[in-house]
Protein backbone atom coordinates (compact mmCIF):
# COMPACT_ATOMS: atom_id res chain seq x y z
CA UNK A 1 0.00 0.00 0.00
CA UNK A 2 1.34 3.46 -0.71
CA UNK A 3 2.16 5.59 2.35
CA UNK A 4 -0.56 8.14 1.82
CA UNK A 5 -3.27 5.50 1.62
CA UNK A 6 -1.81 3.68 4.58
CA UNK A 7 -1.89 6.84 6.63
CA UNK A 8 -5.46 7.52 5.57
CA UNK A 9 -6.43 4.02 6.55
CA UNK A 10 -4.89 4.40 10.00
CA UNK A 11 -6.55 7.75 10.37
CA UNK A 12 -9.95 6.42 9.35
CA UNK A 13 -9.63 3.44 11.68
CA UNK A 14 -8.51 5.68 14.54
CA UNK A 15 -11.41 8.07 14.01
CA UNK A 16 -13.90 5.24 13.67
CA UNK A 17 -12.69 3.68 16.91
CA UNK A 18 -12.73 7.00 18.73
CA UNK A 19 -16.21 7.90 17.55
CA UNK A 20 -17.82 4.54 18.16
CA UNK A 21 -16.04 4.13 21.49
CA UNK A 22 -17.20 7.52 22.64
CA UNK A 23 -20.77 6.99 21.55
CA UNK A 24 -21.01 3.60 23.23
CA UNK A 25 -19.42 4.93 26.41
CA UNK A 26 -21.71 7.97 26.39
CA UNK A 27 -24.79 5.79 26.19
CA UNK A 28 -23.66 3.46 28.98
CA UNK A 29 -22.54 6.30 31.20
CA UNK A 30 -25.74 8.19 30.67
CA UNK A 31 -27.78 5.15 31.56
CA UNK A 32 -25.96 4.89 34.88
CA UNK A 33 -25.78 8.55 35.85
CA UNK A 34 -29.13 9.90 34.88
CA UNK A 35 -31.15 11.21 37.78
CA UNK A 36 -34.85 11.51 37.08
CA UNK A 37 -36.77 14.23 38.89
CA UNK A 38 -40.02 13.43 40.73
CA UNK A 39 -42.44 15.92 42.31
CA UNK A 40 -43.98 15.04 45.70
CA UNK A 41 -47.16 13.67 44.08
CA UNK A 42 -45.12 11.03 42.22
CA UNK A 43 -43.14 10.12 45.32
CA UNK A 44 -46.30 9.60 47.34
CA UNK A 45 -48.18 7.77 44.58
CA UNK A 46 -45.38 5.25 44.20
CA UNK A 47 -44.49 6.34 40.67
CA UNK A 48 -40.92 7.05 41.76
CA UNK A 49 -38.71 3.95 41.90
CA UNK A 50 -37.35 2.90 45.29
CA UNK A 51 -33.72 2.12 46.16
CA UNK A 52 -32.52 3.95 43.02
CA UNK A 53 -30.74 7.31 42.90
CA UNK A 54 -33.33 9.95 41.98
CA UNK A 55 -34.05 13.62 42.51
CA UNK A 56 -37.13 14.95 44.20
CA UNK A 57 -38.20 18.37 45.32
CA UNK A 58 -40.83 20.51 46.98
CA UNK A 59 -41.30 23.19 49.60
CA UNK A 60 -40.01 22.61 53.10
CA UNK A 61 -43.14 22.31 55.26
CA UNK A 62 -43.22 24.91 58.07
CA UNK A 63 -42.48 23.42 61.47
CA UNK A 64 -41.39 20.06 60.08
CA UNK A 65 -37.63 20.39 60.57
CA UNK A 66 -36.48 18.07 63.38
CA UNK A 67 -32.81 17.84 64.38
CA UNK A 68 -31.14 14.96 66.10
CA UNK A 69 -29.60 16.46 69.28
CA UNK A 70 -26.44 14.34 69.19
CA UNK A 71 -25.40 14.42 65.52
CA UNK A 72 -25.85 16.31 62.26
CA UNK A 73 -28.90 14.23 61.39
CA UNK A 74 -32.01 16.14 60.36
CA UNK A 75 -35.47 15.23 59.12
CA UNK A 76 -37.95 17.47 57.32
CA UNK A 77 -41.09 17.19 55.20
CA UNK A 78 -41.34 18.30 51.56
CA UNK A 79 -44.73 19.29 50.25
CA UNK A 80 -46.29 20.45 46.99
CA UNK A 81 -48.96 22.34 48.98
CA UNK A 82 -51.60 20.26 47.21
CA UNK A 83 -51.76 17.36 49.62
CA UNK A 84 -48.69 15.32 48.72
CA UNK A 85 -45.98 15.20 51.40
CA UNK A 86 -43.01 13.00 52.14
CA UNK A 87 -40.29 12.92 54.78
CA UNK A 88 -36.62 13.39 53.98
CA UNK A 89 -33.76 12.22 56.21
CA UNK A 90 -30.34 13.83 55.77
CA UNK A 91 -27.05 13.71 57.62
CA UNK A 92 -24.74 16.66 57.08
CA UNK A 93 -24.71 20.40 56.61
CA UNK A 94 -27.72 22.06 55.01
CA UNK A 95 -27.13 24.88 52.49
CA UNK A 96 -27.45 28.54 53.55
CA UNK A 97 -30.72 29.02 51.73
CA UNK A 98 -32.39 26.04 53.34
CA UNK A 99 -35.27 27.33 55.35
CA UNK A 100 -38.91 26.58 55.97
CA UNK A 101 -41.14 27.41 53.03
CA UNK A 102 -38.20 27.43 50.60
CA UNK A 103 -38.30 25.30 47.45
CA UNK A 104 -35.46 22.79 47.46
CA UNK A 105 -34.21 19.73 45.61
CA UNK A 106 -32.99 16.56 47.27
CA UNK A 107 -30.88 13.89 45.66
CA UNK A 108 -30.79 10.39 47.08
CA UNK A 109 -32.85 7.24 47.31
CA UNK A 110 -36.45 6.57 48.22
CA UNK A 111 -36.64 3.72 50.74
CA UNK A 112 -39.32 1.00 50.73
CA UNK A 113 -40.97 2.54 53.80
CA UNK A 114 -41.49 5.87 51.99
CA UNK A 115 -38.63 7.73 53.71
CA UNK A 116 -36.36 9.64 51.34
CA UNK A 117 -32.70 9.17 52.31
CA UNK A 118 -30.97 12.25 50.87
CA UNK A 119 -27.29 12.34 50.05
CA UNK A 120 -27.45 15.93 48.87
CA UNK A 121 -29.74 18.85 49.60
CA UNK A 122 -29.69 21.66 47.04
CA UNK A 123 -31.02 25.16 47.51
CA UNK A 124 -30.10 27.84 45.06
CA UNK A 125 -28.02 30.89 45.82
CA UNK A 126 -30.58 33.51 45.08
CA UNK A 127 -33.76 33.81 47.07
CA UNK A 128 -35.71 34.94 43.99
CA UNK A 129 -34.54 31.95 42.05
CA UNK A 130 -36.81 28.97 41.67
CA UNK A 131 -35.30 25.70 40.49
CA UNK A 132 -36.90 24.95 37.09
CA UNK A 133 -37.92 21.55 38.41
CA UNK A 134 -40.13 23.22 40.98
CA UNK A 135 -41.62 25.76 38.61
CA UNK A 136 -44.56 23.47 37.81
CA UNK A 137 -45.40 23.06 41.47
CA UNK A 138 -44.99 26.75 42.22
CA UNK A 139 -47.14 27.67 39.20
CA UNK A 140 -49.77 25.30 40.46
CA UNK A 141 -49.66 26.93 43.84
CA UNK A 142 -50.07 30.45 42.41
CA UNK A 143 -53.05 29.39 40.36
CA UNK A 144 -54.55 28.02 43.52
CA UNK A 145 -54.03 31.33 45.26
CA UNK A 146 -55.68 33.27 42.44
CA UNK A 147 -58.87 31.31 42.34
Amino acid sequence: MNPVRKRRLYLALFLLLAVSGTTAALMVALEQNINMFFPPADVVAGVAPTETPIRAGGMVLEGSVVRDPGSLGVEFVLTDRAGAEFTVAFEGILPDLFREGQGIIVQGELKEDGLFAAREVLAKHDENYMPPELMDIAGHQNQGADS
Binding site: A25, L26, A29, L30, Q32, N33, I34, N35, M36, F37, P53, R55, P132, E133
Partner: peptide, 13 residues
Protein backbone atom coordinates in the same frame (compact mmCIF):
# COMPACT_ATOMS: atom_id res chain seq x y z
CA UNK B 1 -39.83 14.78 32.36
CA UNK B 2 -36.75 16.31 33.90
CA UNK B 3 -33.42 14.67 34.45
CA UNK B 4 -30.05 15.78 35.68
CA UNK B 5 -26.71 14.33 34.78
CA UNK B 6 -24.47 13.64 37.71
CA UNK B 7 -20.83 14.46 38.28
CA UNK B 8 -19.78 10.77 37.89
CA UNK B 9 -20.83 10.95 34.24
CA UNK B 10 -18.24 13.64 33.51
CA UNK B 11 -15.52 12.14 35.69
CA UNK B 12 -15.93 8.77 34.06
CA UNK B 13 -14.83 10.31 30.75
Amino acid sequence: SRISIGVPFFNMF
